[in-house]
């Protein structure tokens, strides 16, 4: 028996090695865009568009970061970056809260409850994603105008509380992988649907709920079109809209400042992702229970 287990062990080591090599090579490929962004954010303006492009700035300009944050403050009388950040945080927090709450419940209904018209309505739900946005943009604008929401944050977060087709579909697919027997057992124990949902389904779906939270966070944080259409006043702008201010209509974009600002804008998302993906690992621990 001994030699077998040793060869087994060696096999395992080989496998780990290969995995590491594959991971390192691929992650280099994937990290190129971000590395390029960071490198540009530290260059003097004259080197940003040089060709052939250079990776390492001739001298590292950390001052691009404070410059980017203060960009435009002279004209506006306040530091727009900080105001944009505050606005973005307000919208994002509300959206994530609303989305997790509403989608988890709605998807439960579509995945595990039976009601007349459910499958038809689910089909309609999927279909709403197939109509391209520009086509519904004008009537949607008219609707929010009718509600008196133009110029406020409401069009950007209130709909999150009413679930979204993408997240419903996603969660439904996950909920359906959970064996029905679990629900039935709970039902026999006298649990209400709400109890089954909160005590059985939610704990088992943490990775999926995390994905919904993460994607809503990203979507809301990076949303450009929504704020562009619905926000009017400069001090209600969001970060992604603010990034446009660095871009000049007629060239002369300060790419180094633009990238520095972009790095600052995506930093929170990177951190959130890094923390969120830990939940996946915890998921492994719980899945052993099933």
């Amino acid at each position: 028996m001994k030699p077998v287990s040793q060869s087994h062990k060696r096999n395992r080591q080989m496998q780990t090695m290969i995995t590491h090599i594959a991971l390192v090579t691929l992650s280099v490929l994937f990290v190129v865009p971000l590395a390029w962004m960071i490198s540009t954010s530290l260059k003097p303006i004259t080197e940003t568009l040089s060709n052939p492009p250079r990776w390492i700035p001739s001298h590292v300009l950390w001052s691009n970061y404070p410059d980017a944050v203060k960009y435009g403050s002279k004209e506006l009388g306040y530091i727009p970056f900080l105001v944009y950040a505050r606005n973005t945080i307000i919208i994002t927090v509300l959206s994530v809260g609303g989305a997790v709450l509403s989608n988890s419940i709605v998807a439960y209904s579509f995945a595990r409850l039976k009601w007349p018209g459910r499958d038809l309505f689910f089909g309609i739900t999927l279909a709403t994603m197939m109509v391209p946005f520009p086509v519904v943009m004008v009537p949607t604008f008219a609707l929010f105008k009718y509600l008196g929401w133009i110029g406020t944050f409401k069009p950007l977060w209130v709909p999150a509380f009413f679930a979204s087709a993408f997240s419903i579909f996603l969660l439904r697919q996950f909920y359906r992988t959970i064996p029905m027997e679990l629900s039935e057992a709970a039902k026999i124990d006298g649990c209400s649907e709400l109890r089954i949902f909160t005590d059985v389904i939610v704990p088992l779906s943490r990775p999926a709920l995390m994905v919904v939270a993460l994607f809503t966070f990203m979507g809301s944080w990076n949303d450009f079109l929504g704020p562009m259409i619905y926000l009017v006043d400069q001090n209600t702008f969001t970060l992604s809209l603010g990034l446009q201010a660095y871009q000049s209509q007629h060239g002369g974009t300060p790419f180094n400042l633009l990238m520095a600002a972009s790095c600052l804008v995506i930093l929170p998302v990177v951190i959130v992702f890094f923390l969120a993906q830990k939940v996946f690992i915890q998921g492994i621990a719980t899945s052993g229970l099933k």
Partner: peptide
């Protein structure tokens, strides 16, 4: 004065919306 990205599209929407 407001710097508006996509000034043409946004003006059009706002004009259609009466504002």
């Amino acid at each position: 004065y407001l710097s508006i990205s996509g000034v043409d599209t946004k003006t059009m929407l706002a004009t259609a919306g009466g504002n």
